[in-house]
């Protein structure tokens, strides 16, 4: 059982790397806008500052408000530690298959939205309402693309799915392309990125995620922010696992692990580069165009399912 410490190390790596990844996105976007950018480590500096600050609570905050950051953070980290990043076969990945993994994130979101409602401001309620609405609309599309992916591997266990992808010869599969497209759209929505939500906005009537955490301060805010960074990296890792796991190792040998680490980091930063490009070139959607965006994701995923049966089964 040498893989358990390895797994914990891997989860720790993901958690610690997440702020850097967020800093990377911010830097690339700044460069694309002809600005210098704050550098890769700025999110870490922000977190460190927030952790050191005293917490100021609203006078009517209940225990839900203080409890929520811990739930959000732990559920996200738990989900992150179930996702294989370097090793294909990790003991904890059996804890949650893709569906359970998504549900862990949904638990985090549930408490995030409750925390938004707790103080009783219009902003918090607005954010909670929109977040829950959009995530509800994203859910069918997400499930459908997971469904498409599970057709090949006959499984929703990440380990089995990765092994299936690694063991089958590379070929053009339209269904997977559809599933990938849908998954990317959902990842944008789930992480509150442009074109669905703007993570850098404050004091706008269109904000969603930021509206829910407006009243937070100090370590609570730090946990919330950190959790959303981890979620971004987690989704990137999930997409890597499902669609391009090449480079991951089956057994814990040092050289293979190093290679897997390099491959993983490169792939993550590649995806995040694509994200920053997309965020620079796309405009934020009007609020009520988001449902259309998400239903398109569902349609694309469903087309993936159909094209699997139409094109790949008989072939």
């Amino acid at each position: 059982m040498s893989s358990l410490p390895l797994q914990i190390a891997q989860a720790l790596l993901l958690v610690l790397l997440a702020p850097v990844a967020a800093g990377f996105v911010a830097s690339v976007k700044a460069r694309l806008q002809n600005r210098h950018g704050p550098g890769l480590l700025q999110p870490w500096r922000n977190l460190a500052k927030l952790f050191a600050k005293q917490v100021v609570l609203a006078e009517n905050a209940s225990w839900i408000f203080r409890f929520a950051p811990y739930v959000v953070f732990t559920a996200t980290v738990m989900a992150a530690s179930c996702v294989p990043a370097l090793l294909v076969d990790t003991p904890l990945s059996l804890t949650a298959d893709v569906i359970a993994l998504v549900s862990l994130l949904a638990l985090a979101r549930f408490f995030l939205a409750l925390a938004g409602m707790d103080i009783g401001t219009a902003f918090g309620g607005m954010g909670a309402s929109r977040e829950m609405t959009f995530s509800a609309l994203a859910e069918p599309a997400l499930l459908m693309s997971v469904f498409v992916l599970s057709l090949g591997a006959h499984s929703t266990n990440l380990t089995t799915m990765i092994q299936h992808t690694l063991n089958t010869p590379i070929m053009l599969q339209p269904s997977l392309a559809f599933a990938l497209a849908a998954m990317l759209m959902i990842a944008l929505a789930e992480n509150g990125r442009i074109p669905v939500d703007n993570p850098t906005t404050h004091l706008e009537l269109t904000m969603v995620h930021e509206a829910m955490i407006l009243e937070y301060s100090g370590r609570h805010l730090a946990l919330m922010e950190w959790a959303s960074m981890i979620k971004l990296t987690l989704f990137a890792t999930l997409i890597i696992d499902l669609f391009m796991p090449w480079g991951m190792v089956a057994g814990p040998d040092a050289a293979g692990l190093l290679l897997a680490l390099v491959a993983w980091v490169l792939k993550i930063f590649g995806l995040l580069l694509a994200l920053s490009l997309a965020e620079t070139y796309l405009a934020k959607l009007r609020l009520f165009e988001v449902p259309e965006f998400l239903s398109m994701a569902f349609v694309i995923a469903f087309l993936g399912l159909l094209s699997h049966y139409m094109l790949e089964v008989n072939a």
Binding site: L172, P174, A177, F178, V299, I300
Partner: peptide
């Protein structure tokens, strides 16, 4: 491979129709 490419193009065709 040709078969796969044609299938892929067919899938794209469907996507474009949508």
């Amino acid at each position: 491979l040709i078969q796969q490419i044609i299938d892929g193009l067919a899938a794209l065709m469907l996507l474009v129709s949508f």
